[in-house]
Design a protein around this nucleic acid. Sequence first.
DNA 1: TAAATAGTGTCTCTTAGACAATATCGT
DNA 2: ACGATATTGTCTAAGAGACACTATTTA
Lengths: 241, 241
Amino acid sequence: MTSVPSWANVDERRNLPPALAVSTVILGIRPGVEGGPDKLCLPLVRRIRQPHAGMWALPGGPVDARESLGQAAGRTLAGTTGLRPNYLEQLYTFGDIDRSPTHRLVTIAYFALLHVDQVGATVQDPNVAWFDIDDPAIAQLAFDHRKIVDYALWRLRNKTEYGQIAHRLLGERFTLAALRGVYEAILGRRLDPANFRRTLNSTASIEATDEYLAGGKHRPPRLYRYVGHGPDPLEVDPLHG
Amino acid sequence: MTSVPSWANVDERRNLPPALAVSTVILGIRPGVEGGPDKLCLPLVRRIRQPHAGMWALPGGPVDARESLGQAAGRTLAGTTGLRPNYLEQLYTFGDIDRSPTHRLVTIAYFALLHVDQVGATVQDPNVAWFDIDDPAIAQLAFDHRKIVDYALWRLRNKTEYGQIAHRLLGERFTLAALRGVYEAILGRRLDPANFRRTLNSTASIEATDEYLAGGKHRPPRLYRYVGHGPDPLEVDPLHG
DNA sequence: TAAATAGTGTCTCTTAGACAATATCGT
DNA sequence: ACGATATTGTCTAAGAGACACTATTTA
């Protein structure tokens, strides 16, 4: 290795075909402390190579010739973080010429959601860490990854009205209060418990169970379950259709 | 050239990195005949090379190393059809392993809208033609392009509620009846003229002008103009942001 | 029984849609 | 005047949100 890496030669770089990679924004929900609101959070990996060595970045990697794009996203995020999301959706493809200082890089961004019980359960590695979505430490990320994160959040907020998203951040069974907490974390504002309940009851994709959650300090809430519809075409892959 | 092309060798193919291309679904509106409803239509190009030679396909081509993805979409659609859309938006990236029978092909699909006066005005070329969206002749297209068209239509239908789309299919000034025709063509159903008018008047992105459209057989309708908001983040590129 | 959350009832306001009625052009 | 479309008015039903109220548990 020389002190001037070969990729610094712009002329050479321009003759290479674009490299193809995937990156994934993995979002989970973290219960609020002391009655505070729940928080959206995500795992990031620290880059150990140039460019942007030392900076936090989205998990990802190159697309192998024998795997689909969604498989590449799932493989690379599992390889770096050890996580197994239950939801994966293609977000957008970023291909501006100068988004990497070293080479022409086209990145297909994905968007994953994790159940609460997986949040924080990443591999033991100092180069993998969780951040709250509003943590100032991640105001800057490698490449244009901050833009990708912001776009994922925008998509998440604009999709909640369709339902089908918030419960992917919870487990199989959940209380309406927990579900409301998820919506509040996503939308960033308080929701009226009464109206929230009525709205979801009319949704028909949420179903009451016979069970109640005991152990709280107060009246035990009923547990609900999600019964899904089909997803929107192409919006969900490859775990679904 | 041999009778067995080199790309038929699967082992060889698997060692190649994915090829990167763009394809664009270009949609326009065609006035209905005899008082019938307006129709959505699109230009297609006939493939002159393998694979799928002779089949109709979306305009597109490979991504050059020195252009952005949106620029590649604009360049390739202009090169094949001669059209200049006023709206271009990234749709989705298709990368299934077997979507091309000959090689691993990753295609970033774009979605463009044309003003009415450009509909039908393509280059003189027997390998370029316009089709109504419900024309049975395009039930089958090359590659997975039919799936891409269907996805573009789905996006268009689910976006009309945001406004800002239908008038990109018309010119600068338009009557409310023309705009209603566009919505009816997209949604595939009749809309009440009175309610449509009221809804748009409250939208504030549609503004009445002082002009009226003369020359009709009946009472001349007022002309309106679109006054845009900012687009949603990343949903619009590269002509905008 | 007090505190806290679960859950219900009711009211208002906005909006989508059905549909009647009026306005204004060309012929 | 007539036909056709433009434009306005009115009514109803459904949904979102504010908010008072009741229910049921633990401490």
